[in-house]
Design a protein around this nucleic acid. Structure first.
Lengths: 209, 209
DNA sequence: ATAGCCATGTAATAACCGCTACACTTTCTG
DNA sequence: CAGAAAGTGTAGCGGTTATTACATGGCTAT
């Protein structure tokens, strides 16, 4: 055996490092999302995650690097939660209803609300890599809704209508939920709100009343 | 002169104290709005305002008290900026246009955007006195728009239509402006956006396209 | 003028912060 | 099994923080 298999070498240390990294990220996510960037303590993260402070600094460089990693991961989760594929075979109203409910549920999920709070307050110190793809999830969803409207030939300007749908779905609850942790919306309320917005956008305010 | 005039005694010290308080509040507003609560330093506030650290603590108790005072004042300013009286004699479209532009200009003003950023991130540590009246400005404006629509008998459900107008006016720009300091909207864009939303809500998506 | 009051300026306290250094143990590799 | 590499624990450094204490100055009223 003069030649070892080139690719499959050093499996364990990578796993070990990845496990440490994941533990750090999980603890850091808790701390950052519930305390904010400035109030969060790196020592507190290590205290919760176990392991050593030195290892954390070896992996993320400094506090800001850890914060960036947490926010990038959290943003990716949110985008993935938004990405929904089904609903193509549904009718116009049923499809929009499914899209809208899924969208609003994601927006109002506790973890994502905490993420948005930090995001709004600390956006100025996030790296461009996160900021540049900032609106990709949103525009992606808007594209899905636009395409759905276009396929059903429901409105003359699908792009504008999709924008109105998303803004109205979000408008009523998102800001209030961000600024008030006790603000709760039941599934029924979400469902009815989504349905009403659909009627208003598709058929005008006279039908929605 | 055995009896001095009871009310008008000690005029100067009150003025002096009020002037000190105002100087502290102005400096604190700058510091808090541009640095956030945690990153802000009380000594920095005193350095900018002049005066003494001891007097600041005598007036506001501690850092949180100073923060509460700043946020309450700033919120009052925002509410007052929203409160617009005129536009009663205007036509339906012209009146809504004036209301919408005024509303969006206030929402997107630099100082108010900074206020919202702190408000979203730090709402959990604001006193109830501020939080309870949190939505009063918004609901007040919604009431004005509702009344305006009702007087013109423009729609069957003025309350719902007013809600849609406000959500759509705000939706497109507010969140983006909060998370991106470089996000700029020209007066023309605001005017056109407001007008388009009015057409959509009043006459449906078919006309707005 | 004298006594009292309040603002001032400055210094000190005590705690916590991010971060680094270092000696030690564990784990993997050749 | 020897040695390299990586993880661990702790202790400490330099700095900043909110907050308090205190000695000093200017003002008002008697």
């Amino acid at each position: 055996m003069v030649v070892d298999p080139p690719p499959p070498k050093a499996a364990h240390p990578q796993d070990r490092g990845a496990a440490r990294r994941e533990a750090f990220l999980n603890a850091a996510r808790e701390v950052f999302l519930e305390q904010g960037y400035e109030a969060a303590s790196v020592n507190d993260v290590v205290r919760r995650a176990g392991g050593s402070l030195a290892t954390l600094y070896a992996q993320f460089g400094n506090k800001e690097g850890l914060f960036h990693a947490v926010m990038a991961e959290q943003y990716a989760r949110f985008v993935q939660a938004l990405a929904v594929k089904g609903a193509d075979h549904l009718s116009l109203e049923e499809g929009l209803q499914a899209l809208g409910e899924h969208f609003l549920q994601a927006l109002l999920a506790r973890e994502n609300l905490a993420f948005f709070r930090i995001f709004v307050g600390e956006a100025h110190k996030l790296p461009k890599a996160v900021l540049d793809t900032r609106s990709s999830g949103w525009e992606n969803l808007q594209g899905v809704v636009t395409e759905f409207l276009r396929r059903h030939q429901a409105v003359p300007d699908p792009q504008a209508a999709a924008s109105y749908l998303l803004d109205l779905w979000r408008g009523r609850h998102h800001f209030r939920a961000m600024t008030n942790e006790a603000y709760a919306v039941s599934d029924e309320e979400i469902s009815q709100h989504v349905a009403k917005v659909i009627r208003v956008v598709l058929y005008g305010v006279t039908t929605g009343a």
